[in-house]
């Protein structure tokens, strides 16, 4: 019998879809899965989280303190809940927020943590995760009475394991020491999904030539319900923002579909997206290295192919 905790990420729509893979990773024979949520009522999440195997959904609530302003306070509350529910394996999502909070929990407890895992064996306490920017994977053994891991978004295919979930509230008296305070969150005007959690990504490279031209990709992404990414060169030349960069010094993504438009296929770029399920390249050079390491290719000028693709998608 293992007590598994899963830290669930929510947004304005409720439980984010990216959590389903994390819940799936936590499932197993004799696993009692307890899902922790913050800033949303547990009862609002029991149906969906029960479908993926949670027997209990616990809302973590601070006694009057503003949790949203302090990640350390959030971590403290999670630590108290982990003790209360005798959790021995805590899962989270390797998103910007998830990896930050889980690292805080790990640092404050001294518990071992593996971030960005591709698979987990709960009984053996081993995980598989990328090393050397995806050039290898490493199988790691985590030793401790409490161990932590975060799962790469979209890396684990979701599987339902329905049970009936109960709901409860947990709170503990912690306060913010004021040394770190989140003052404000600056929103992104585009409103598109974050690339690290997107299921479909269309990325542009150097030949895009300007920020304006990136709108060609934006239109295609909107038709697909996807996000727009960029190569490092495109970012450094000012065509796209840093938050859109995919690769070794950018974001790591694992969508089910990745469409690379005008990218040569550098090792550093592939470090960030090679775990995508299907990779398509659009490039006007038939000898471009990217065609040697992707699934499908169209040889042609992206300025013609991408709008045609958008049109073909819109017609479906």
């Amino acid at each position: 019998m293992a007590n598994i905790g899963v830290l669930i990420e929510t947004d304005s729509t409720g439980v984010k879809i990216a959590n389903y893979g994390v819940m799936t990773a936590a499932q197993g024979e004799g696993h009692q899965i307890i899902a922790f949520v913050m800033g949303i009522a547990a009862t609002a999440c029991t149906e969906i989280l029960g479908r993926y195997g949670a027997t209990q959904v616990i809302e973590l609530s601070s006694q009057g303190e503003n949790l949203a302003k302090s990640p350390d306070l959030q971590a403290g509350l999670i630590i108290d809940a982990v003790k209360e529910y005798h959790i021995d394996f805590l899962f989270g999502l390797c998103s910007s927020k998830g990896k930050d909070i889980m690292a805080r929990v790990a640092a404050q407890t001294g518990a071992p943590l593996a971030q960005d895992c591709l698979s987990v064996d709960v009984a053996a306490r081993t995980v598989v995760k990328p090393f050397f920017s995806g050039r290898t994977t490493a199988t790691l053994q985590l030793n401790g009475s409490l161990v932590l891991c975060t799962i790469r978004p979209n890396a684990i295919e979701e599987k339902e394991a329905p049970v009936t979930a109960g709901a409860a509230v947990f709170s503990s008296a912690r306060s913010n020491d004021g040394r770190l305070v989140i003052k404000e969150v600056k929103k992104n005007p585009s409103g598109r999904v974050d690339i690290s959690e997107a299921n479909i990504i269309i990325t542009g490279g150097r030949p895009l030539g300007s920020a304006d031209n990136f709108q060609i990709l934006g239109k295609c992404a909107d038709t697909l319900g996807g996000a727009v990414g960029a190569s490092r060169v495109a970012v450094d030349l000012g065509y796209a923002s840093h938050s859109m960069q995919v690769g070794q010094t950018g974001k790591t993504v694992s969508p089910r579909l990745y469409v690379a438009c005008g990218l040569s296929g550098s090792v550093q770029h592939f470090a960030g997206m090679k775990t995508a399920k299907v990779i398509v390249a659009i490039n006007n050079d038939k000898d471009a290295p990217i065609f040697q390491k992707c699934d499908y290719g169209i040889i042609g000028d992206l300025f013609e192919v991408v709008p045609a693709l958008t049109e073909a998608l819109a017609k479906r």
């Binding site: 998103s95 927020k97 989140i182 005007p189």
Partner: peptide
Amino acid sequence: EIGGGEKEVI
């Protein structure tokens, strides 16, 4: 950076 072009001011 917190993803999706959003930023926390801390």
